[in-house]
């Protein structure tokens, strides 16, 4: 195990010195901002470090790095969007004068909501709405059925389908690239 980790670190070191500069350039082109490109390049290598992939068997290191970095860009965009809409919604619900959530709370909530959004975003409209209404708003299937114009047994199928979909997405993210 110790030897394995040693080789893994060495392989990561090689990956870093051979491709870090190139990746940062690629990211700068994508993002149009060198500061964000530098941060994102660091995050990409951090993600590689914590993944379980065997770096020695990596045949296309640059393709791999851009895949990881591409996902980070999408995650980041999703998080920003969730944060913006969360703050707008907060303002709408609590009024202008209300105390905004603390930055720690905000980071935590946005992280969580972005993760939920990732799990649910590829689901079709009705199963997703049924799941959200049931799980977050605590509404009964009868109410949801009335709102979506489907039968109660269909609402149950939607909720089960949403759960299975979430498990699929989670499974996908955990496996090797």
């Amino acid at each position: 195990m110790g030897a394995g980790r040693y080789y893994q670190n060495e392989a990561l070191g090689a990956l870093y010195s051979n491709h870090h500069g190139w990746l940062q350039g690629w990211l700068r082109n994508k993002l149009g901002c060198s500061q964000r490109a530098a941060d994102m390049a660091q995050d990409t290598f951090l993600r590689v470090l914590t993944s379980r992939i065997d770096l020695y068997t990596l045949r296309e290191p640059r393709a791999y790095l851009t895949t990881v970095a591409g996902r980070l860009i999408i995650d980041d965009a999703r998080r920003r969007k969730v944060e913006r809409i969360y703050l707008e919604t907060w303002g709408a619900l609590h009024g202008e004068t209300a105390v905004a959530p603390s930055s720690e709370t905000l980071v935590e909530v946005v992280e969580l909501l972005a993760e939920v959004a990732r799990l649910l975003e590829d689901l079709p409209d009705k199963p997703r709405r049924a799941f959200l209404m049931s799980r977050l708003d605590g509404r009964s299937y009868a109410e949801i059925a009335a709102e979506l114009g489907v039968s109660v047994s269909m609402v149950k199928k939607y909720v089960a389908r949403a759960l299975l979909h979430c498990l699929d997405v989670l499974e996908d993210g955990e496996g090797p690239e």
Binding site: V82, I85, T89, L93, H94, V116, E121, D125, R135, L136
Partner: peptide
């Protein structure tokens, strides 16, 4: 997120 109106409305907006 249970019963968190802001969270629920945010998700509806982000995803809908």
């Amino acid at each position: 997120l249970d019963g968190e109106a802001t969270a629920s409305a945010t998700l509806s907006t982000v995803l809908g």
